[in-house]
Design a protein around this nucleic acid. Sequence first.
DNA 1: CTGAAAGCGCTAACAA
DNA 2: TTGTTAGCGCTTTCAG
Lengths: 346, 346
Amino acid sequence: MADVAERAGVSPSTVSRTLRGLPTVSPDVRARVEEAARELNFAVSRQAASLVTGKTGVVAALVPTLNSWFMGSALSSLGPLLRAAGMELTVYVIPDMSERTAFFERLPARRNADALAVFGFDLTDEETVRLDDLGMPVIYVSQHADGRPSVYVDDADGARKATRHLLNLGHRRIAFAPTLGATGFCFSSRERLLGYQQALTEAGIPLDDDLVVTMSSDDKRDITQGVGKLLSLREPPTAIFAETDELAISIIYFLRKAQIQVPERISVIGFDDHQMAEWTDLSTVAQSPSDMGRLAGELALQLIQDSDADHTRHVVLPTHLIPRATTAPPPAPQGGHEGAVEERRI
Amino acid sequence: MADVAERAGVSPSTVSRTLRGLPTVSPDVRARVEEAARELNFAVSRQAASLVTGKTGVVAALVPTLNSWFMGSALSSLGPLLRAAGMELTVYVIPDMSERTAFFERLPARRNADALAVFGFDLTDEETVRLDDLGMPVIYVSQHADGRPSVYVDDADGARKATRHLLNLGHRRIAFAPTLGATGFCFSSRERLLGYQQALTEAGIPLDDDLVVTMSSDDKRDITQGVGKLLSLREPPTAIFAETDELAISIIYFLRKAQIQVPERISVIGFDDHQMAEWTDLSTVAQSPSDMGRLAGELALQLIQDSDADHTRHVVLPTHLIPRATTAPPPAPQGGHEGAVEERRI
DNA sequence: CTGAAAGCGCTAACAA
DNA sequence: TTGTTAGCGCTTTCAG
């Protein structure tokens, strides 16, 4: 910066003012400084600046993985939004329990970010408390956190929609397949289970624990076994509501592999409206992770600016049912002969 | 840090030494300092440290989007690797041309990272030169950059494998569908096209430009039109090689929707071995983006440490063909009656 | 509108 | 093994 100052024939202070766009710089000086900066390929060091301002210019995101449709979409919208505000995005990927423990013990984000967005973890109370004294706003995304800023979809409502859709088609034996990430992380399982149960109760159908089978969506064997468990019940389900589209698609794969027609014999519905849902004609409940990323980013920027903004704001996003070709009325009670024309599907 | 020093009854330097794990600290002092640090919830400010060391402790990744299987997998493996080395990952998401221009003009990573990993962009020469004087090692991932460190798969070879597989099945009219990101970014299209052409030439089949139809994999209309173009040729292809699995899956969707059986009438093969490829029984060429992420990270760390390491190293990863159920021999020349048993697919 | 000077929190010499 | 000192590159008073 001193070089730029010298080249432009002004003091470092003036260079600083110019480069930050402060209005208290005369036009000709501004022009000289900007040219000098360009010629020298000068870029301000965030490190040095933040040392004195106390702001790092960084928003941190805590994610269990980047390798999922949800996270990818959310961060793809968060990133450019932050850049537009002159901020950078640093990502902490926490793929397993030991990394998670390490993260919460050391809290490496402390002093190295102005805000933290926590994506989709089902945090323990201790972990939440730990984040409370991190010294920066923490935004909870895709999860509730009482009394703390959160952005999420109404998962329970979405699950009700999915379940009601199946009920409306005439299904009475409806299974729910929550998914457990390989690492003990848990997205919105609880809420979706709740919505599923509410819809059943609403319809006067007793809950049956045998119809709730957790499957890890990364693990083929686990899915086969889970599907097997459902098929071997004395009264198997005629419909399966999978917690995510990815799980739904793999369940369909195993059902069809076992010669069980979908949706003629068993209907399957997912949750997400993953890009693949369209290509596989999957009925699902849509949510918008990119909206969540955007809103989380806006909330973060706002909380960074007004330290006394409303820190308890919850933003709840809508979901909507997208019926496609994997849900249909259940097969006739005993006859077992199925729908006439069989469409081709991927 | 001064607080910690006072509480532990030592000087700031000693605290610094302790916290950085230098060996020149006596055990009892170390213990006192660590306890004090824990009690005060102290974490070193990277900003201040980097001001004096000149190292930021950050690796930057430049990506066109995070919302793709490839990027998600690559960064999911890069992130934890960097954390294990005590580094942070900051991500620049450059979704469109204007952001791209802005990035290369301002180079915001300058002085704010120790290395930059550029993922999957097809950079212009000017852009590459611009990165050369960024003042930090730049690792090119999923692309060649002559004389600069690169990590990529042998796309041409993978494409040859895919094309040969189709040739071996008896196909002679084979189309190639490169995909153009919505934003003018271009992954490995060129190389894959090349491999496709080589395999054809090798087999003595003349190239036909009509069989190469670009389709934007985000855009439904574009894909329908592209498929339509191929189907309306005087001599339509009996097989399509799609540049990516995602494109392959959507092409299959449109073909089946148009009552064109896959693979009986037209074979389709993709490239990636996307997680969904298995669930859709898609034949494909596998590559491992997580390996690429990992190797890129290792290379970055190495270049950061030894500034005089080999800056021209190229790491080339293998691909392998995974034949599944979307490729089969072409239909009999004129009769048009297809294979006997029809397997069920998602 | 501009410059001088102080200091942000840390590390790296050097001295003890 | 530990403490002292001098900056790293910037922003921010405060004078002018």
